[in-house]
Design a protein around this nucleic acid. Structure first.
Length: 473
RNA sequence: GGCGCGGUAGCCAAGUGGUAAGGCAGCGGUCUGCAAAACCGCUAAUCGCGGGUUCGAUUCCCGCCCGCGCCUCCA
């Protein structure tokens, strides 16, 4: 059995990883706040998590992934108020868009997408426990806060010096009725706009709504148990979000909340973090309209290690589009009836076996997708070279296909063929027949004219082996 | 200020204490009527700068420069 290694933010080291029960990885991933369609930066994290779940599966474990949808928060309430709607009316369409984008990028469906608003009782139970244990208190403003001073290990994930935090935050002290400026809200007392937008619930502490950090703790423990195998998210969530999740969960249960914490680095645009306020946000919809394939986006993202910042650029996306086109050509060629008939070579099978080994090693070594891609491309080059030779060995082709599918089962970077409607296909076939006839009578002026005519409508030709293949480019 | 990440060929990007994967782009060749696709070959990196440790450092340590992030909502 191969070792599976992951960088753990908690220890700042790459460590050996295995699910506690040896079988199922219980994985919690912080999902989007659904007030606006998620941007590509968000999706880089979700793609990192998709790679994680697929690599874990390749290793032979089952994965039980939960991704929350934060459907109640300040921004959502603000938006609802502006539009005179309820928070649900605001979030529902955004959730739909999220799943549409997710599917476009071929991000596998998680086992559960709990909405915060569906877990209010669980959250209140958690608050109750924390109040009972004396680590949470209700302040004069009616909100319930977590007292970080009563949770000694606070700060262990982010390694922030608490004195530094306190002094830096001192100026804010006046604005709150909290015991300590860094205490965070578990339950926020309802304001008029909360009531107006359907964002208020009854509780033992009065009307209110849950704090963001509370949602994740409550849903994660409810759906995955008190100790998770793996908790993932964007690097910006380390503090305070994940730090606070740890505090709430561990103060309540006395158990380790997540055995391993894994964080993905940012996607940058023009050298800075992709964020709405910077105005450098790209959406999945925008990419799709620009004709960039999901396969290219995946290649682009996986070509850089998940813990390293990645800068979005047209040039990089174009390079990925080309790279992925080559992967698609190889996939097509492997499954081509002519290839199957012709058979492969022993070298083909060897190249396949070697590639699978290297890909597994790379992915199991802290999700080194760039190295896995390198191994795939080596396989493609060697495989193509072997397929150019007289084969005869059908089994080697089968092996190559099997290996390719296993590798691509993780990376998922074969571009979709552009679909053509029936009428276009008829026209193309008719043109190809004319061109074939022209070529037979060696009228290359006419045959090239037809090729140009087809090219003008995006049809790319490849002559070879006595026949001509076409595809939409 | 505190905590953290990065600076590798024209571009993107792995990696290692013994001079460096892969992709894109470029150049030549094979194949093709010509292309395309594929393959073969080539070009291209003093691994940010300066010290130190070492037989030897791009890889370890120190300092510096540059870029980015978190410390407030944030993937």
């Amino acid at each position: 059995m191969s070792d599976f290694r992951l960088y753990n933010t908690l220890t700042r080291q790459v460590e050996s990883f295995a699910p506690a029960d040896g079988r199922v990885v219980r994985m919690y991933t912080c999902g989007p706040t659904v007030y606006n369609p998620a941007h590509l930066g968000n999706f880089r994290t979700f793609l990192f998590e998709d790679l994680m779940r697929r690599a874990l599966a390749l290793r032979g474990w089952s994965v039980h992934q939960v991704m929350n949808l934060t459907d109640v928060d300040d921004k959502i309430i603000k938006r609802a108020q502006e539009q005179g709607r309820t928070i649900t009316e605001v979030t529902e369409p955004v959730i739909e868009i999220f799943h549409r984008d997710r599917e476009f990028l071929r991000i596998q469906q998680a086992e559960a997408y709990p909405k915060a608003t569906a877990f209010i009782p669980e959250m209140l139970a958690l608050v109750g426990t924390l109040v009972e244990r004396g680590v949470a208190y209700q302040a004069d403003d009616g909100s319930v806060y977590f007292a970080i001073a009563r949770f000694p290990s606070y700060g262990k994930l982010s390694r922030l010096d608490t004195r530094e935090i306190r002094s830096g935050a001192r100026v804010l002290q006046d604005e709150y009725t909290k015991e300590n400026a860094q205490d965070f809200a578990l339950w926020k007392a309802a304001k008029p706009e909360d009531e107006a937008t359907g964002a208020a619930w009854d509780s033992p502490w009065g009307r209110g709504r849950p704090g963001w950090h509370l949602e994740c703790s409550a849903m994660a423990m409810q759906l995955l148990g008190e100790t998770l195998d793996l908790h993932c998210g964007g690097i910006d969530l380390i503090f305070p979000h994940h730090e606070d999740e740890i505090a709430q969960s561990e103060a309540a249960t006395g158990k380790t909340f997540a055995r391993v914490w894994s964080h993905g680095a940012f996607l940058l645009t023009d050298g800075s973090k992709m964020a709405k306020r910077v105005g450098n946000v790209f959406t999945v919809e925008g990419l799709r309209e620009a004709g960039i394939s999901a396969a290219a986006v995946r290649h682009f993202v996986y070509n850089t290690h998940y813990r390293k910042e990645l800068n979005l650029s047209d040039q990089a996306l174009e390079a990925s589009t080309e790279a992925v086109r080559r992967v698609g050509e190889f996939a097509r060629r492997l499954r081509d009836p002519a290839t199957l008939e012709r058979g492969g070579t022993a070298g083909l099978a060897h190249a396949a076996d070697e590639a699978l080994g290297l890909v597994r090693d790379a992915l199991f070594d802290d999700l080194n997708a760039p190295e896995a891609l390198a191994a795939l491309f080596d396989f493609i080059r060697k495989g193509n070279a072997e397929l150019d030779r007289k084969g005869g060995d059908r089994a080697s082709v089968d092996r190559a296909i099997e290996v390719f599918e296993r590798i691509d089962g993780v990376l998922d970077i074969v571009p979709l063929a552009v679909a053509a409607d029936a009428e276009l296909v008829r026209w193309i076939e008719e043109r190809l027949t004319s061109r074939r006839e022209a070529r037979i009578r060696r009228d290359f002026v006419e045959s090239d004219r037809i090729r140009d005519e087809l090219a003008a409508r995006g049809v790319v030709l490849e002559d070879g082996g006595g026949s001509t293949r076409w595809k939409l480019g």
